[in-house]
Amino acid sequence: MVSMKKFIINDRFRKKELIKVKNKISLFNNYYKDIHFFNIPFSLIVGCLGVMKKGSVIFEMMDSFTTSMFSGGLLLSLYFFNTRYSNQYYFYINKGLSKWFLLLWCFSINFIIFIIYVVIKSNIL
């Protein structure tokens, strides 16, 4: 009987923790979308400018686009978000997500996308 009670309590605790983790993923997703509201159009422009380089049009465009997504485009987006909506960081801080956590995850995801692209490209060429 006691072990059954313990199991129920542990199960409830696990479910609560799972909801919290899901919630944090949704929060990060929202921040990521806000940041990329500027980053994606900006990086697309950079990608289009990359076409001017000699070589395959698609690869040159993708090179510039993916590089901008984790470097210049991301930095500019973060700068604009910091200057215009810096108070919105408290929305995430109140849910236990620090500013550095959000910034690092944004960078990491975009960098992983870049690495995947480089691997795919090197396999094709």
């Binding site: 949704s26 909506y85 108070n87 919105q88 849910k95």
Partner: peptide
């Protein structure tokens, strides 16, 4: 980080691109 303390800043902290129902869903797990 341990969600022991919450803070209301002087200026609004709600995301301006979201409707209130979405904000509540995100903010209150």
């Amino acid at each position: 980080k341990a969600e022991k303390i919450a803070y209301l800043p002087q200026n609004s902290f709600l995301p301006i691109f979201l409707k209130l129902k979405k904000i509540i869903k995100l903010f209150l797990s």
